[in-house]
Amino acid sequence: MRRNSPLVPYLFVLPLICLLAFVFGLSLIRLVEFSFKQVRGIDGPWIGLRNYELVLGQPLFWESVIHNLKLFLTIPVMVMVALVLALLLYERLPGWRIHRTILFLPYILAIPIIAVVMKEMFQFSGPVNAVLTALSLDFMVLDWIGSADVALWTVMGLIVWRETALGVILFLSRLMALDESLIEAARLDGASWRQRAWHVLIPQMRGVIEFFVVISAITMLSAVFAYVYVIGGGRGGPGTATMVIELYIFNALIRTSLPGIAAAVSVLLFAVSLLLIWALFRVRRREEA
């Protein structure tokens, strides 16, 4: 084959494509196949769409979906907090390097570690309520992880605290790469800090903000298992107050011996994630056009 043949680049990546197809493609095909079977052990009879019917007709599934959707509320909070912190750090306030490290620290720690520590902190008889009581703020003393009304909000708080760190680092990296002459020009024209941030800096950060939003959306949809597993006592509790789709899948597969059901929900989750990514690319393409 001639070196300048258009097929050559594809041949270079072919081994990797084969490997990916084997690792992910095969699993995906098997997952879809399982979702149409009543699996016991590692196989079972074909039952058509029955698994999907059962899942979509079960209140617990929809409760899990709603909890995942509620977690989306953390995204605007994380974006705003991360933006403000990144802009403050960009101003190179005294000790900004240390602050940057401190802010990023939660993201370096494994989720189970911080979740276990937070669970201890937020127990009804734990340090958080003890401090609130000592400060005569008894009205703020809550059963943070034991109350069905509060537990999901506690999980959300923990997610915001940890995941915002990624936003800060992403935003700060983008800010560091901006052309400083524009900012200097705005400063010379008398623009205040708020005006510089709003009219000069943030518009140039649009791409990275979008990226962070999408990453966060995928996280809220399919990567919060460790948070709810630890905070919700391993079961999405109290009751079903912190049950999310990932935990639903885990329970179906591991605890209730229903691999077919777990596969059906996984396929649904995969489809929604794909839809989300597709929507993002579409929006970006339209903007670029």
């Binding site: 937020f122 127990q123 009804f124 008889s125 059963d143 992880i145 034991g146 109290p238």
Partner: peptide
């Protein structure tokens, strides 16, 4: 007990 819901 008051802390029953938050204890293992």
């Amino acid at each position: 007990n008051k802390d029953m819901a938050s204890l293992g």
